[in-house]
Design a binder for these strands. Structure first.
Length: 730
DNA sequence: AGCACGCCGACT
DNA sequence: GTCGGCGTGCTC
């Protein structure tokens, strides 16, 4: 005998941290997770049922009815909903906002949505007869007929002719064409024999137990064969009838990984969820996953919420990457959510990296995560690159290039191999300076300097995008001798062209790769051996495989050596390790030259010895000494206003609310004073922040739960605020 | 977030 | 006298 509910608890996409009760005849447990239409204020909104009840705290007479139920089957499975509830609580973000963040945009729209399987049009035998004679002026029809000699999607037909849909309709009625479901065509990539596993790889594949929801770190240098371990684990999971979730930081490096997955599992239903697929396709794939019709999901951070009823394994590639952290709205860490999801559904989670985050490394030391190490490069002939420093205090460097680096590039050119020059600055020069009066080009809207982009002859702000023509003379004193100081990717490219006029140079940075497809084109050129020297920012450091690359030059990494951010040295070390790993992968020895004015800094010593573990341990010691994460847990309240005083004043109020309403919770939580943000001004908005810190994650959570909802009740005239749990930039 | 209600300045 | 500024309060 089931309980009769009459009240549906529904969340709506509004920034209000609560659910709303509605009357609904015969709501049942099975309705939880369905989308509905409800009257809200003076409008109708979409909501999601999160609970059912027989009573309400709200006056019964004032309850409104659910107008319509949109789904036959819930779009969220119970375990996904449980995960979203956890996120809402942990990140102190309204459940409605959390649920609607996870929902594909197309499923957020009211318009009815046909969850039709993808199909294609094809000529029938009678159609071939009837249309075979088409000739002359019916150009559009001829083109369509020719296209349909084999199955072709409506999208492509629409691109061929604007009349496509009416022609299709006519021909389909005449029986000349028929629609056929698109069967997943087996990938034509070479399947080939699986590579032999090294003993290390085999041991790890063996050690990951699908029935044990243990988190583990797969620590392996670049080229040590992490991907092969992933593939074997996926194979294991598929054989057990499980679904696999593979998270990647960005779509940038997905193509290579995606190809390897497709080639290895040509018959598995694999879906790749990234920012470039259409809304309709994302919604369709989401529902297919939800029905258990996809066995491998490869996607960026948002994919961590995709409903997968048979989820049995989660892989997180390049787990140290900050792209797993969403920096607006629901400020979640997909890595953290994935670990929680693994725990909830009893699936193991594997965090792969050559440079694990200190947080993860810490967990392996404390025994909470297992540590699996791949210590050797998988291709036996590939050895670790040799790393050397160039002391820029003693060597003359012109336009950023030391003579050592120049001759190393020359030698590499002579061997017809590729070089990569890494510099963490876009543009031509990061500072424009007047010798006469000391003026520097600064952004009006941000507390940042303007960067010179010389081709466009413009000064550009890298924080707000604001640009202006580069001045010919100092705007303050009229001095014509204003100097670009420092080196960016463009200036480096210019110098290289001077030194190596016949070399084929390719610059890879956000400016050069702005246009869609340019990154793919660049990768193709690199792979085809059409590039001698690569110049670029961290885009180049991430997980790419450049087989002919034997020299890596780090032009200037000094800016992050003594930065204010306590995570800067961790990031720099990871970046240097990653970019060094690009050198010498296919049996050719690699060489890395790092230019620095601080060669005695311990980070370089660790880098030269390829000693991640040692450096990580010393960084952890520093963190422990200073009581920084992962030895302490933080939450950061940010406020943004037209004037900094307003932001500061609002934060003071927020702080006061904490002190007066939940003093008990503050026994274990340190509440700091509001301070202006490091970047106090961005795009004309001024920002301040308030930090909370505790040695106990649970105590911090208790405090936040008792306090954060009060923030919604604070008068917030012109203030934009957000609360971030486990912030990565403090 | 939207959108109403509500009370003070310059305008057809 | 009104149109409209955005402060504040509410949405089951």
């Amino acid at each position: 005998m089931s309980i009769k509910f009459q009240i549906a608890r529904i969340v709506i996409d509004v920034p209000i941290p609560k659910a709303f009760d509605y009357v609904m005849e015969e709501v049942k447990q099975a309705d939880i997770g369905k989308r509905v239409i409800v009257p809200f204020g003076r409008h109708e909104r979409m909501g999601v049922i999160v609970d059912c009840a027989s009573q309400s705290d709200y006056p019964l007479a004032k309850l409104k009815p659910v107008l319509r139920v949109l789904d036959e089957e819930p779009v969220f499975t119970p375990d996904t909903l449980a995960l979203l509830k956890f996120c809402s609580q942990y990140y102190q973000f309204p459940l409605g906002g959390t649920i609607f963040t996870a929902l594909p945009a197309r499923l957020r729209q009211l318009a009815p949505w046909a969850d039709e399987a993808p199909y294609a049009w094809q000529l029938t035998p009678s159609g071939k007869d009837a249309l075979g004679g088409l000739s002359g002026r019916a150009k559009a029809q001829i083109a369509l007929r020719d296209a349909m000699s084999e199955p072709v999607t409506p999208q492509i037909l629409n691109a061929i002719s604007r009349q496509a849909s009416s022609v299709i309709k006519k021909w389909a009625e005449a029986g000349w064409i028929e629609s056929v479901p698109i069967t997943r065509v087996p990938c034509d990539a070479q399947i080939g024999p699986k590579p032999y596993l090294t003993e290390e790889q085999a041991r790890i594949v063996e050690a990951v137990d699908l029935s044990d929801p243990q988190a583990s770190v797969l620590f392996g240098v670049t080229g040590s064969g992490k991907t092969e371990v992933y593939l074997r684990l996926v194979e294991k999971a598929l054989a057990a009838g499980k679904q696999v979730l593979v998270l990647v930081p960005e779509i940038n490096l997905t193509p290579q990984l995606l190809l390897r997955f497709k080639a290895r599992f040509p018959h598995a239903s694999l879906t790749s969820l990234h920012s470039e697929i259409s809304d309709a396709e994302r919604a369709r794939e989401w529902m297919a996953c939800r029905r258990g019709e996809r066995s491998i999901v490869l996607g960026t951070r948002l994919s961590v919420f995709v409903p997968l009823p048979a989820l049995g394994l989660i892989l997180i590639d390049e787990e140290h990457d900050n792209a797993y952290k969403q920096q607006d709205g629901l400020r979640y860490s997909a890595k953290h959510v994935a670990l929680m999801r693994g725990k909830l559904v009893g699936a193991p989670v594997l965090l792969g990296s050559a440079t694990p985050s200190l947080e993860s490394w810490f967990q392996t030391l404390s025994g909470k995560y297992r540590l699996h190490t791949l210590s050797q490069r998988a291709v036996a002939s590939a050895v670790m690159p040799t790393i050397a420093l160039v002391d820029t205090r003693r060597r003359y460097t012109e336009d950023g290039l030391s003579s050592e680096l120049i001759s190393a590039i020359q030698a590499t050119l002579d061997r017809k191999e590729q070089s990569l020059l890494f510099i963490n600055r876009r543009g031509y020069a990061p500072v424009i300076f007047c010798d006469a009066c000391g003026w520097q080009a600064g952004c009006d809207r941000c507390s940042a300097r303007l960067v010179l982009h010389r081709q466009q002859k413009r000064l550009v702000c890298h924080h707000c995008g604001w640009g202006q023509p580069a001045p010919l003379a100092c705007p303050d004193c009229g001095n014509q001798d204003i100097k670009p100081i420092g080196v960016g990717t463009q200036r480096l490219e210019d110098s290289l062209e001077k030194y190596f006029p016949t070399a084929r140079i390719l610059r890879i940075d956000r400016d050069a790769m702005r246009h869609k497809g340019s990154w793919a084109a660049a990768q193709a050129r690199i792979a085809a051996g059409e590039v001698d020297i690569l110049v670029g920012t961290q885009m180049l450091a991430k997980g790419h495989d450049f087989p002919d690359l034997t020299l890596v030059g780090v032009v200037n990494a000094d800016a992050s050596l003594y930065a204010a951010d306590f995570r800067a040295s961790e990031r720099l070390f990871a970046q240097l390790m990653q970019v060094s790993g690009r050198a010498g992968r296919a049996g050719k020895p690699g060489q890395v030259l790092v230019q620095t004015a601080f060669p005695e800094h311990p980070v370089f010593d660790a880098l030269i010895r390829h000693d991640y573990a040692g450096y990580a341990t010393s960084l952890l010691q520093e963190r422990a000494d200073c009581a920084f994460p992962p030895y302490t847990f933080q939450a950061l309240l940010r406020a943004e206003a037209p004037r900094i005083e307003m932001a500061m004043q609002w934060l003071h109020q927020a702080r006061q609310t904490a002190l007066s309403t939940v003093p008990a919770h503050l026994a274990e939580v340190t509440c700091f004073d509001p301070v202006p943000a490091l970047m106090a001004r961005i795009d004309g908005k001024e920002r301040a922040q308030l930090l909370f810190q505790s040695d106990s994650r649970a105590a911090l959570q208790r405090f936040l739960s008792g306090w954060s909802y009060l923030l919604y009740e604070l008068p917030s005239n012109g203030i934009h605020w957000s609360l971030e749990v486990d912030p990565i930039e403090v």
